[in-house]
């Protein structure tokens, strides 16, 4: 199958332009990160370093977890709207009568969510690290800057957002109500977070091999999800709403 980068680029550019001028999306992308950075920073700055080991680790874990909620939540909001939103505003029919393939359309839609999510998530994580380095207690800062913590955040951010994006697009492809799609997508984006929670709270002993194993599993799911969503993408059903 020959993919057309021009067609993917056309949809991607269209989406990014549309996001930029959509107040709901602009507010979501600006306000949500503020919430998710304020909470962990406040937790760390008020953290008493004298508390015993497991409690200390839990508080650190919660702060880092907040950083991973962002790449799960942002795409779930955008991806849930991606197909059903086109259908609602009547743009889906003209798009689907062009030579674009379902695979190209879906990849473009996924990239249009992935790019801003990653940019915002890494940017916010950068601010978090900067604030910790400058203002947090040196023991707290040293714990946060442990290589495994940083690596977990960097690796799991795109993987978790990939999961959210594909579940969001799958739901958006199948459900005919925007609100229902968004609520379901937020719920569906949570399972990978559960594992990260268990690791951050040391319920599952975090180890490099475990993290790598989970990363590989998520990566495979993200890759296969694209194929799965493509099979759900039925032009006739999307246009007529009939199964």
């Amino acid at each position: 199958m020959n993919f057309s980068p021009t067609r993917i680029k056309a949809i991607l550019r269209n989406e990014l332009r549309d996001y930029r001028r959509n107040r709901f999306i602009v507010y979501t992308m600006s306000l949500l990160p503020l919430i998710f950075i304020a909470a962990p920073i406040a937790q760390l700055f008020t953290l008493n370093v004298a508390i015993i080991g497991s409690k200390f680790n839990n508080r650190i874990g919660v702060s880092l977890l907040d950083m991973l909620i962002l790449p799960a939540i942002i795409p779930s909001i955008l991806a849930a709207y991606s197909v059903i939103g086109e259908r609602e505003q009547g743009t889906l029919e003209p798009i689907l009568t062009t030579p674009i393939r379902a695979e190209e359309f879906l990849i473009a839609k996924a990239l249009a969510v992935f790019i801003p999510t990653i940019v915002v998530s890494y940017f916010i994580f950068g601010i978090f690290l900067g604030a910790v380095a400058v203002f947090a207690h040196p023991i707290v800062a040293a714990t946060i800057f442990e290589r495994n913590h940083i690596l977990t955040q960097l690796v799991f951010t795109p993987l978790i957002s990939g999961w959210s994006i594909w579940t969001g697009i799958a739901i958006s492809t199948y459900i005919s109500d925007v609100r229902a799609a968004q609520q379901l997508t937020v719920l569906a984006s949570l399972p990978p977070l559960v594992i990260v929670i268990l690791m951050n709270f040391n319920i599952i002993a975090p180890s490099l091999s475990l993290a790598l194993g989970l990363a590989v599993v998520l990566f495979l799911i993200d890759t296969m999800a694209w194929r799965f969503v493509t099979t759900l993408f039925n032009r006739e059903r999307l246009i007529t709403g009939k199964h």
């Binding site: 021009t6 056309a10 949809i11 269209n14 009547g90 798009i95 062009t98």
Partner: peptide, 27 residues
Amino acid sequence: AIMPESPGLYSRLTVSENLECFAGLYE
């Protein structure tokens, strides 16, 4: 090419941007 009953335009994009998108889809 099809012109459906509802124009199906991206309301937040300009006329030119709407057409640019479709020009890309037809390469």
